[in-house]
């Protein structure tokens, strides 16, 4: 049984009369412990693909089995619970709460998991030390560099021990040095702790970190292999 199994996933957006088939019959499996990079031009459906895997969105048709459970028909509350327990998100914009400290940002998923304040702090501090930010726990996001903010975001994604880490252009707002640092963290997490990691990127050198690459074009997977050839047109 694969960790992620998509069967004929279709996502259609309607704009009045028009229909846009953002995902067109996607069938794909991702095993536990894989490091996958998703590539493709904007509008190719890669973000929607991520949103569906991340249970932020539901498919128009098709089946999505996460850990063997069909989540494509889950209610909003059930999806929220899946996101809380099984998914860790990392965003291009970091998406930290500006008025909360690094520590409080990391604690956020634990609050919604109903974990006690004491335990939350313990767990969050532990994870912050893992991304090398123990000394920044009480800093606010604006007091941190972009790379540091993204590390806080990674800590937040990890804190509730998810099955999958989903990162949408995690290096998009970072300089090349920070980008490499962040990617090293993902790589280490994947190799040493076996976190299943899925990263959306359009930079080939970032995608090179992946052990598997999936390329989208017009809502379809056009390449799914260890290394996809770089298409100059994209």
């Amino acid at each position: 049984m694969s960790l992620i199994e998509l069967e004929n996933i279709v996502k259609v957006y309607k704009f009045g009369e028009f229909e846009i088939r953002v995902l067109d019959n996607i069938t794909v499996k991702i095993e536990k412990g894989e490091f996958v990079c998703i590539m493709g031009p904007s509008g190719s459906g890669k973000s929607t693909f991520m949103n569906i895997i991340g249970c932020l969105d539901t498919p128009t048709s098709g089946k999505y089995y996460l850990d063997g459970v069909d989540v494509s028909t889950f209610s909003l509350d059930q999806l929220a619970e899946i996101r809380n327990k099984k998914i860790g998100f990392v965003f291009q914009q970091f998406n930290l709460l500006p008025r909360a400290t690094a520590l409080e940002n990391v604690e956020l998923p634990l609050i919604y998991a109903g974990i006690s304040a004491k335990k939350r702090k313990e767990l969050a501090l532990h994870i912050l030390s893992k991304v090398g930010l123990s000394d920044r726990a009480n800093h606010y996001p604006r007091q941190l560099s972009g790379g540091q903010q993204q590390r806080v975001a990674i800590a937040r994604a990890l804190v509730n021990s998810p099955s999958i880490i989903l990162a949408d252009e995690p290096t998009g707002n970072l300089d090349s040095k920070s980008s490499l640092e962040i990617m090293e963290i993902f790589k280490k997490l994947n190799e040493e702790q076996g976190f299943t990691t899925i990263i959306v990127t359009h930079e080939p050198d970032i995608a090179a970190f992946g052990k598997r690459q999936i390329r989208f074009l017009d809502g379809k997977i056009v390449c799914d292999s260890k290394v996809c050839p770089v298409d100059e047109k994209l």
Binding site: L56, L76, D77, A80, R83, K85, N95, Y112
Partner: peptide, 16 residues
């Protein structure tokens, strides 16, 4: 709005 989005992404239910 964005804060709400972040909270939802990390597992806040609509009722929360």
């Amino acid at each position: 709005t964005r804060e709400i989005g972040i909270r939802m992404a990390v597992g806040a239910k609509p009722k929360d």
